Each structure stands twice: as C-alpha cells, then as structure tokens.
Simulated scan of single mutants.
Amino acid sequence: MKKIILLSFAVITFAISSQIAKAQDDAKPKTDAKSKSDPLFKAEGWVASLNLTDTAKATRVKQLITAHLIAVRDWNNSHDYTLVPEGMNPITGKTFNKLERQVIINSMIPKTVHETLMTGLRKELTEDQVELILDKYTIGKVAFTMNGYKSIVPNLTKEDEAFILTNLKLAREQAIDYKNIDQVSTIFKIYKTKIEDYFTNTAGRNWKQMYKAYADAAKAKKAQQPAKE
C-alpha cells in the first residue's frame, strides 16, 4: 500500500511539474519571426538604422514610432472590414473586395495619429532621416517603383521623373497609416494610376503601349535563356 501511495504521489508530482514547465515555456518571448511584427521591435530597428548619437533623441523618436504603429495596429484590429457595407466601386464598377473595404475603414483613423508622428519626426530629424523612416514603413517602395518606371518608360525627362517621385512620396506618407503591405500597396496603386494617366493624358505617351512593349521584351528575353537542367 505504501509503495502504491508513493507511486501515485510521484505520478502527480510529475504531472504538476510538466504543467509548470509548459506554462513557463508559454510565457517565454515568442520567436524572432513573430517579434518582428511587434511595434517596439520595429521601432528599435528603424531608429538604430539612423545611427543617432543623441540617445535622448533616439528614445523620443522610438517612442513616436512605437506609439504610431500601435495606434495603426489597434485601429485596424478593432475596425473590421465588415463595418463597410458591400457595394460597387464607382470607378471600376466591381464590388469592393475585403481588402478595399478594410482600406476604406482604415482611412478613417483620426488624423492626429498621422500628424503627431510626422510633426514629431520633423522636429527631431532631418528631412533625409524622416524619409529613411518612411521608407522603413513602406519597405522601400518609392525606390523600387521608381526603378520600375525607369525600366518601362523610355527616355524619361526630368519633368517625368519629378512628377513620378512627387506622387510616390505622397503615396509613401499616406501609406504609413495602414497596417500591412497589402494595404500599403493599395495606397500606392492610387498614385500609380495618377502617374500612368499622366503619361497618356499629359505627356502624350501611351502608357498601355509602353507597358506592353516592356512586358513583351521581358518575355522574349526570358525565352532566350537556356533551360535549367
């Protein structure tokens, strides 16, 4: 009987110990992959890229960015796309999809969220440093998209480049108030449409023809490459 009691006690002790170990493991910080989406993690990395020597300034900038990222995240998470009724996009004639409805509801975030961040950044940083932070928010889409236009449109003029860059920077600043890259890309699409209309309606160049020529050339080049064994 004594052995049975001791054995039962040992089993219970093991079970309790296992539960405690599991609870402690669950309480540990999440993996790096998950922590990368954490506002503080992002802010620390972005501010570190500025190489600021003033630690007090670096702390203030980090706090600004963290607060903004949290505000954007919380607004997105508490304002579901279903708050925007299904309906027809008057531009395309198609029904708004889930992403478009989420972008619409996210566009209603209080303006002070954006203004507080931008005013704070411009108070603490140079304009080049502000642009670096905005590029972090939008994973460098300004430079990437500009390079795309340079590849598609032959003989870009200085006026063309200035128009493109102005609109891409407007897209970038607006896009920082959206939660993920799909939403960011949707904002950039608004300004890319303006740019493409500019080529056809103002610069006298047919955007669709230029894009088709670019796509055809890229396809032909790919076809000429030797097949991989």
Rank of each mutant, 00 (worst) to 15 (best):
K111H: 08
V142C: 08
E173D: 01
H79F: 08
G45M: 11
K98N: 06
I164F: 02
P226E: 04
V113G: 04
E124L: 06
T119M: 15
M210I: 08
M88H: 08
L117I: 01
H79I: 07
V11P: 01
P110A: 01
K189M: 07
L134Q: 04
T157K: 11
N77F: 11
K22L: 11
K2G: 00
D197I: 14
T112E: 13
D74L: 03
K219R: 11
G148I: 10
I16N: 04
T200F: 07
I70F: 15
K136N: 10
A56P: 00
S78Q: 10
A227R: 13
G120S: 10
E124T: 04
E161C: 05
E127R: 11
R205N: 07
A143E: 14
A143H: 11
K136R: 14
Q102N: 04
Q63H: 13
G148R: 13
S17Q: 06
G204R: 07
P39H: 15
A175C: 02
I65D: 00
K228H: 05
S8T: 12
K189P: 00
E173C: 02
L132H: 08
E173Y: 02
N167H: 08
A175I: 00
K150W: 04
D216S: 09
R122D: 03
T92W: 03
N97C: 03
I181A: 07
Q209A: 13
M118T: 07
K57S: 09
Y178T: 01
N201F: 14
Y198R: 12
Q225W: 02
D182Q: 06
L50Q: 05
I164D: 03
Y178E: 06
Y137H: 09
E124M: 01
K62H: 08
A43E: 09
K222C: 04
T55M: 11
T126L: 05
I91K: 15
N89I: 04
R101N: 01
V130M: 08
E229P: 00
K94I: 07
S18Y: 12
L134P: 00
I181H: 03
I91S: 12
Y191W: 12
L40V: 15
D197W: 14
E229W: 06
D54M: 07
K3I: 11
A43H: 11
K221S: 09
F188R: 12
I164N: 02
I190K: 15
N77A: 03
T202P: 00
A171P: 03
Q224V: 03
T138W: 04
A175D: 00
V184Q: 09
T59G: 09
